Amino acid sequence: VTLFVALYDYEARTEDDLSAHKGEKFQILNSSEGDWWEARSLTTGETGYIPSNYVAPV
């Protein structure tokens, strides 16, 4: 399991995006899409895309 933590708040801009709150942890499901990674929030269980530069490894 690849875990990352949000460094900043991010507000989803499309229905495919996933909002993130600073300190929230995510499981990365797919990081092969360049700057946008598919992730699952460990807080809400929701999945979507987050900007890779907004997260760091735990």
Rank of each mutant, 00 (worst) to 15 (best):
G23F: 04
S32A: 11
G48W: 05
L7Y: 03
T14E: 08
K25T: 12
D17N: 09
S52K: 14
V55S: 00
Y49H: 07
H21C: 13
G34P: 14
G45W: 06
P57H: 05
T14S: 14
P51G: 04
E46M: 14
D35M: 11
P57K: 07
D16C: 15
E46P: 01
I28Q: 01
Y10W: 15
D9M: 04
T2F: 11
Y10Q: 00
P57T: 05
T47K: 10
T47H: 07
T43C: 14
S31I: 11
E33K: 14
Y49R: 14
G48R: 01
A6F: 08
V55R: 00
H21Y: 13
E38W: 15
Y8S: 07
R40A: 04
R13L: 11
T47E: 08
S19H: 10
A6W: 04
A12T: 04
L3T: 09
N30P: 05
D16W: 15
H21D: 05
A20Y: 06
Y10E: 01
D16N: 14
P57I: 08
G23P: 00
L18D: 00
Y8W: 12
V58Q: 06
G45L: 06
Y54E: 02
A56H: 08
N53I: 10
L18Y: 03
S19A: 08
Q27M: 13
Y8C: 15
D35K: 08
E24T: 01
E38A: 07
V5Y: 13
S32R: 11
T2Q: 13
Y49C: 13
L42R: 02
Q27Y: 14
G45T: 01
I50N: 00
P51A: 05
E11F: 09
E46G: 07
F26H: 00
I28W: 03
L7C: 12
A39I: 06
E38K: 13
E38R: 12
T47N: 05
Y49K: 13
S41V: 02
E15Y: 09
E38V: 15
Y8I: 07
S31F: 15
D16F: 15
E11K: 09
D35H: 10
A12N: 04
L3D: 08
L18A: 01
D17M: 13
E15W: 09
S31P: 10
N30W: 07
G48A: 00
V5Q: 07
W37Q: 03
L42E: 07
E11G: 04
E24N: 01
A12P: 11
E24Q: 05
